[in-house]
Design a protein around this nucleic acid. Structure first.
Length: 761
DNA sequence: CAGTGAGCGAGCTTCCGCTTGACTT
């Protein structure tokens, strides 16, 4: 029996560490937190100093039992991460394993090396209870905010919604960015490029200003220079030094994998997890850019051996983020000599990590930049030609993307230049870009909101709750004006570009618009971009022993909770923000967009026209929101149901959109037409759907027994039914071979899965 | 399953942060 039990957070870490320690040690993992507030109910005693009611997390009971057994008769070393959460994990372990937090050994290390572990065992301390209190304050504040705000949303906006310190700010960022884009008015200007020549070598130079007005400025300017003289005014040459980027943190890895590999943040984390578990990289959830001495040494030998001395440059990158907790190293390979990984996805991500880490320890690249200013006779504006020639590739050696030199011919000041054409093309200013998943993570990190372990789950949550959709946007084709001056003549042409298209971006829904505006109006403080930063200051003071955590939470709750009571009296209607979209020219009725009980919708006419006159309703067109839907789109939405035509049997075919998407209605039957537009579906297509439906109906009956007992083919496969109860037939059973009593048994023993759905009236 | 749109009712949903692994697609 081992005499010592070391407890860490991650099982992969436990495996590595146990190799460093002798037989007297067993190393086990807690798999993160083992105790928490229960999922159900607030579980905080508001009236008694916010006393939390912690329980062993349901999925951790087995682990806690194992740890308890191992801890018997052993000296326990709590080796969770050295940060606020890690300290709390250590404390919860003392509570669950019945250890004394004042005397139990607490050890910490920042790198998983034999030296670091042995050193930590020689220098144990006890749990820092102030730091534990800071974590409790964080946990309790998040529970109070989340569990008091969310029920308000269920009541006032829609069931199942959620709000929280992190997710609600994430949604706010996305809603506000979309509004910036919607209100953006593009400015037109003209970019002017000249093609010049010296001897036989052509080169480009750009006019130093953008011309604005086509008729008053661009055309006259180009006309004027037809006979102008172009001369080299001055030439400057200077070296340009570029430094490598810092090693990866979770957030920068997610950004790079998104940009270069097209990975979602979830995908990046899942692939990185595998690389970590197989020992290829260090821990993947970190906010630190620090490399261990061991890694620095290994990088040094690799670079010197493979590229030579002049490519090596030792650098340590200090983490800029002030909220960083730095329990881990940067993300790096564990062995630089390992060049490829068998799995394709793992290999792709590994290459990014390998390159970025080694590059961070390499020399800067040096290029020579040349700038030639070209004057135009009779004009104040000048052309500027830029050249860049690589002198030393440095860290770029790793990336292998070849640098394309831009050579300028050797020019002398005062020299006269020939020219071939000067071309002005219209360009439009662009609004801020929509957030991609990775860009949102970056913004949240800048604001100090969220942690490396929560970025991916947060992105999923705001999508699962229906606040945000990740999708593409079609652009619009826009005409641009181009005017070209050659030594002979002025040529005017038009060109076409696509504007406003987007791929895989986060776009807010109507629910997000309404929820965000409600929260920002009534819970301004919590929705503030610096709310987290402010409460973090208080958590730091708790950690330093300067304030009591109960005092911090009491103060917060005193200002927060009354707001919850205030909003109780606000009506749904007030929150749902009716927007007048426009007037239907056919009947002069106003069309409104608003959020109803079942989601965003359009309404024609108001509800207070008297008893007999009821407004018409229509579902919100796909990918449109209360704010973005136009009158034209709304009018189309009200044109349903549409009569498509008739079947051969003279039955009317109607197309409409219902609760479950677009459908055809024929002879009282409903036929789903996913991916088809009921406004435009042709009679021919509709008949195809009808035919397929009839064929399927014909195949529906598999077998029939006595007393109405039947086997039918349903959308989820074959099932038994007696007309009242349905039961799925197991996958490995052939429905054709079932006899009556077997079918009866299946029906009798079937326990339907619990599902909650809207009640029918 | 192809309606609806106010509020009530019973029972339900919900936070953030630390870890994997068992699921389905």
């Amino acid at each position: 029996m081992a005499k010592n039990l070391v407890i860490v957070e991650s099982p992969a870490k436990a495996k590595t560490i146990s190799q460093f320690l002798g037989k007297d040690y067993i190393v086990k993992s807690s798999f993160g937190h083992i105790r928490d507030l229960p999922k159900k109910g607030l579980s905080i005693d508001i009236d008694h100093d916010f006393k939390p009611d912690y329980v062993i997390s349901p999925d951790k009971t087995k682990i806690v039992k194992e740890l308890k057994d191992s801890a018997k008769d052993a000296i326990v070393w709590l080796a969770s991460d050295e940060d606020r959460e890690g300290e709390a994990i250590a404390w919860h372990l003392t509570q669950a394993l019945k250890l004394d937090p004042k005397t139990t050994n607490r050890i910490v290390f920042h790198e998983i090396t034999k030296n670091a572990i042995l050193k930590s065992l020689e220098n144990p301390r006890v749990i820092n209870l102030d730091l534990v209190d800071a974590q409790q304050a964080r946990r309790i504040l998040d529970r109070l905010v989340g569990y008091e705000l969310s029920p308000i949303l269920w009541k006032k906006i829609q069931r199942g919604l959620s709000a929280g310190r992190v997710q609600s700010v994430a949604v706010r960022l996305i809603v506000e960015r979309e509004r910036e884009i919607a209100s953006f008015r593009a400015q037109s200007s003209f970019k002017t490029i000249g093609i010049f020549a010296k001897n036989d070598q052509k080169f480009n130079a750009e006019l130093s200003v953008r011309l604005k007005e086509y008729d008053q400025e661009v055309k006259p300017w180009l006309n004027d220079i037809k006979n102008a003289e172009f001369k080299v005014k001055e030439i400057t040459e200077k070296p340009s030094v570029r430094n490598p980027s810092s090693p990866f943190t979770t957030s920068t890895l997610q950004q790079e994998a998104s940009r270069k590999l097209g990975f979602s943040v979830r995908q990046t984390m899942s692939v990185a997890q595998k690389l970590y578990e197989n020992g290829h990289i260090t821990y993947m959830r970190t906010d630190s850019t620090i490399l261990s001495e061991e890694a620095l040494d290994a990088a040094r030998s690799y670079i010197i051996n493979n590229f030579g001395d002049k490519y090596y440059h030792k650098r340590q990158y200090l983490t800029k983020d002030t909220n960083a907790q730095e329990a881990h190293e940067a993300i790096r390979p564990t062995n630089f000599n390992e060049r490829t990984i068998a799995d394709n996805y793992e290999n792709k991500l590994y290459q990014l990590i390998w390159q970025r880490t080694l590059a961070s320890q390499m020399s800067s690249s040096i290029t020579n930049k040349t700038e030639a200013v070209i004057s135009v006779s009779g004009k104040e504006e000048v052309f500027v030609a830029k050249g860049e020639v690589l002198k030393f590739d440095g860290f770029n050696k790793i990336y292998k993307n070849s640098f394309d030199d831009i050579f300028l011919p050797s020019l002398k000041p005062g020299e006269k230049l020939n020219w071939q054409e000067i071309k002005s093309s219209e360009i439009f200013s662009k609004p801020q870009a929509r957030y991609s998943e990775a860009a949102l993570v970056r913004r949240l990190e800048q604001l100090g909101i969220g942690r490396p372990s929560t970025y991916a789950p947060t992105i999923s949550t705001i999508q699962n709750r229906g606040y945000v959709e990740k999708r593409d946007l079609e652009g619009k084709s826009v005409k641009i004006r181009v005017v070209t001056q050659t030594p002979e003549k002025l040529i005017e042409t038009n060109d076409e570009i696509t504007q406003g298209s987007d791929k895989n971006k986060l776009i807010p829904t109507s629910i997000a618009e309404v929820t965000n505006d409600f929260l920002v109006e009534y819970f301004t403080n919590v929705l503030d971009y610096d709310f987290t930063a402010k409460v973090e200051d208080n958590f730091d003071k708790i950690a330093q022993g300067k304030i009591n955590w109960v005092e911090v939470i009491t103060n917060f709750y005193k200002s927060f909770h009354p707001l919850i009571e205030t909003v109780e009296s606000i009506s749904r209607q007030e929150i749902s923000k009716m927007r007048a979209v426009g007037v239907d020219p056919k009947d002069n009725q106003t069309i409104y967009a608003r959020l109803g009980r079942f989601g965003p919708m359009l309404q024609k006419g108001s509800t207070d026209q008297g008893e007999d006159i009821k407004p018409l309703f229509a579902p919100m067109p796909k990918n449109k929101t209360i704010e973005t839907v136009t009158l034209a789109e709304a009018l189309v939405a009200f044109s349903l149901p549409r009569v498509v035509g008739k079947t051969k049997d003279n039955l009317e075919i109607k197309a409409n959109i219902g609760r479950f998407g677009p459908y055809l209605q024929i002879d009282g039957k409903f036929i789903s037409i996913k991916d088809q537009d009921p406004h435009t579906i042709s009679l021919e297509d509709a008949l195809h759907y009808y035919q397929a439906y009839q064929e399927k109906e014909a195949q529906k009956n598999i077998k029939q027994y006595k007393n109405g007992l039947k086997i039918l083919n349903g959308p989820y496969g074959p099932y038994v039914t007696d007309g009242k109860k349905n039961a799925r037939i197991p996958k490995d059973t052939d429905p054709m071979k079932l006899n009556e009593s077997e079918a009866k048994d299946i029906l009798k023993n079937y326990v339907p899965k619990k599902r909650y759905r809207a009640k029918k009236k």
